[in-house]
Design a protein around this nucleic acid. Structure first.
Length: 243
DNA sequence: CGCCAGGGCCTCA
DNA sequence: TGAGGCCATGGC
């Protein structure tokens, strides 16, 4: 899937426009244990995640699958009482208890099994070792785990390991379709390649761009009732924007 | 009430 | 490989 030559700069333009319009998003939100501060609003950009934070991001990436992030926050509050569970604590936890702790995120039985499966992997494979792998190798390992598909793998690579692998989600696909850059049947990898080929391979940019697309999807590019009147990515605004 | 939200797995052609 | 069914809570 190639986009037309004249459109090549659209990907860069949209990033600049979204960043200017919405501001920095500060992803990935971490801090489930810091209940005494607004942990979900702190800026995490340019920060190397601790092992605990990496694990929290991984858990969050599973819980947020096909689910509103607000539901995940509720689960985090339950999980983090009294403290956010380590991989070993997840693994040792009674399955039914774990399922109830993540109740509000939906699919509790599926996700409880996935969390235990993934916790077992990260008990045996340390973050320091995994950090040394290149993106394709790390990605294949993550994809081999039950419960981690394309988007979750890239979310973990990008937000936990700070490596530049672009995250494609439903918002991303919808946006590119409405920008007339792809079709409904364009695959995950083809969509990801559009971003990889038109942006510097920079984890900070990938981090911010995906978060901005999600914010844009929530504020303007909704599935059923998009708000096109004030859309910062309307055709005329994109065309008149100079890099 | 129906639809959607920061998906992925399994099955069956 | 691709379409369809399934998992399931909470907001609107």
């Amino acid at each position: 899937m190639n986009i037309n030559k004249p459109n090549l700069k659209i990907i860069r333009k949209c990033y600049d426009i979204l960043l200017e319009y919405y501001g920095e998003q500060g992803w990935w939100p971490v801090g489930a244990n810091r209940t005494n501060e607004p942990s979900y609003t702190i800026t995490n950009k340019n920060r190397i995640m601790s092992h605990e934070e990496k694990w929290e991001i991984i858990v969050g990436s599973i819980l947020t699958q096909n689910t509103n992030w607000k539901n995940v926050i509720k689960s985090f509050a339950d999980l983090a009482n009294p403290s956010f569970p380590s991989p070993k604590e997840i693994l040792d936890m009674d399955l039914e208890k774990l399922a109830m702790l993540i109740y509000s995120s939906g699919y509790r039985n599926q996700k409880a099994l996935r969390l235990k499966n993934i916790a077992n992997f990260f008990l045996e494979n340390k973050f320091d070792k995994l950090s040394e792998y290149d993106i394709p190798r790390l990605r294949n390992i993550l994809l081999s785990l039950n419960g981690i598909g394309n988007e979750t793998a890239d979310s973990i690579i990008l937000y936990a390991f700070s490596k530049p692998s672009f995250v494609v989600d439903a918002y991303t696909k919808r946006l590119l379709i409405r920008l007339n850059l792809i079709s409904e049947k364009t695959t995950y990898n083809d969509i990801q390649n559009i971003f990889h080929e038109n942006l510097p391979k920079d984890s900070e940019i990938f981090n911010e761009y995906h978060a901005l697309i999600v914010e844009h999807g929530k504020k303007h590019c909704q599935k059923t009732k998009p708000i096109c009147e004030t859309c910062p990515l309307s055709i005329d605004k994109i065309c008149s924007y100079q890099i």
